[in-house]
């Protein structure tokens, strides 16, 4: 295998690592939240992927439950699945910081260590997991796939009904 071919193969492995494939095939919390306080549909007009994110935020501003269901590629479904796990029981404000970190990981602006430094140490394990989404940084057209669920959640929190990947 040539050096370039090896790099390409490694890029693919980094994108489709086991954790991503596992969450892509067996998404956690692929349902609708009961008594949701916010709901939004996300849509990637490029590929037609659609996702519905629902969440219940309590009076203290904490995510009691987050769920995402829809159709999409391995990257968007895995990202949605990991998002629902990472955000449960987190204050909404911290959740927004997590999104910020994920977005920067996916575009290659920061590495895992920098992402950890942005957030409380209790989230280190979750950040390790979410960092697997960072493989998309070598595939610019796929960044939107990874961020779609997060944008959808954000528009749900901000009281908008819909999100599209045109906001990256």
């Amino acid at each position: 295998m040539t050096a370039l071919a090896q790099v390409e193969a490694d890029d693919l492995k980094a994108l489709y690592q086991e954790l991503i494939l596992d969450h892509g095939k067996n998404p956690r919390n692929a349902r609708l939240v009961e008594h949701a306080s916010c709901t939004a549909k996300g849509n990637n007009p490029l590929c037609g992927d659609r996702i519905t994110v629902t969440a219940r935020v309590n009076a203290a501003g904490v995510f009691e439950d987050v769920a995402a269901e829809g159709k999409g590629c391995a990257i968007s479904i895995a990202s949605a699945s990991m998002m629902t796990e990472a955000l449960k029981n987190l204050p909404v404000a911290t959740g927004r910081q997590v999104f910020n970190a994920v977005q920067q990981l996916c575009t290659g602006k920061i590495d895992v260590a920098a992402a950890k430094a942005m957030l409380p140490a209790t989230l280190n394990d979750e950040i390790e997991k979410l960092a697997s989404l960072g493989g998309v940084k070598q595939f610019p057209v796929r960044v939107k796939c990874a961020t779609l669920p997060w944008h959808t959640l954000l528009s749900c929190l901000d009281g908008q009904a819909d999100a599209t990947t045109e906001k990256v």
Binding site: D11, L15, Y16, C47, G72, C73, A74, I75, R142, C145
Partner: peptide, 13 residues
């Protein structure tokens, strides 16, 4: 078991 978008990414490489 493979979304067309993922397929296209791998084929591209």
């Amino acid at each position: 078991g493979a979304h067309p978008h993922d397929l296209a990414t791998v084929l591209d490489r």
